[in-house]
Design a binder for these strands. Structure first.
Lengths: 138, 138
DNA sequence: TATTGTTATACTCTATAACTATA
DNA sequence: TATAGTTATAGAGTATAACAATA
């Protein structure tokens, strides 16, 4: 199978993903938590609906993720006064502190990848983006 | 997130994998079926144990996959006479015919990827292999 | 009537423990 | 005692339908 592009892409991605998971283990943080914290940090007051769309997580499953992050003290849910059906999501100070640590771990991870790729890094990323944009349905 | 190598790698891989799944849909074949058929074709008489190690599927889960492929008439299980605990796996004529069709679909898929990458293809694959070998635990 | 978040539920994948039959 | 395959089962992750509150 080693000769196939798709297979090699998958093997590389699995290796990177495992490394990524490993980098977050000390913080008891999974990749989905990191993405969610990052999105909320960049968009304070984000609604669950919008978070779910971005992360491609169905609403019922998001309920559990958000409840988990709230229970851990990373996020706050505030009833929106404009639309009382929805909640606005915000990071707590603890959530912000955790995200700062996770960002540092993530940066180390990315640094290792960049070092591995050397001067190919730009061309490599452009190729990845070309694959994504050509093959993705939208 | 668009700026991160790991994220872009994941997005590209997800796009390719979806395309791959789509290419096999007409044959009611999932990627794991294809890998298993291919491995058995290349190693006639393969034992489940060995198949599981290669595909990184735990033995109990492999039982279901093998039973499914047998039930569909793609493979045969023959009791080994040397070691009566184990089964030797072989493709049936139907399995071989299906694999031939799947190989053609896979080749189309790979062709599309090669076309997308153009003259970067070799360098791109070497970068993927470098990532894998440096980050993979073994 | 439609939308936000929720509950209940089901299906797939994956993981472990314990069993059987052979070695 | 160890190994190949099996069974039962449990845990993630992900999917749909239907509900309450609100728009």
């Amino acid at each position: 199978m080693q000769e196939y592009i798709g297979f090699r892409l998958r093997m590389a991605q699995v290796a990177v993903f495992r490394n990524f998971v490993e980098a977050f283990r000390p913080y008891d943080l999974r990749p989905v938590h990191y993405s969610a914290l990052k999105l909320i940090a960049l968009n304070p007051g984000l609604r669950q609906q919008r978070l779910g769309e971005t992360l491609e997580i169905k609403r019922p499953n998001l309920v559990l993720l958000v409840a988990d992050m709230k229970q851990r003290g990373w996020i706050e849910r505030r009833r929106s006064r404009l639309d009382k059906r929805s909640y606005a999501l915000h990071l707590t100070p603890a959530g912000k502190a955790l995200l700062a640590e996770a960002d540092a771990a993530h940066e180390q991870h990315e640094k290792r990848l960049r070092a591995l790729l050397g001067r190919d890094v730009t061309r490599f990323c452009l190729a990845l983006d070309r694959i994504r944009s050509e093959l993705a349905p939208r």
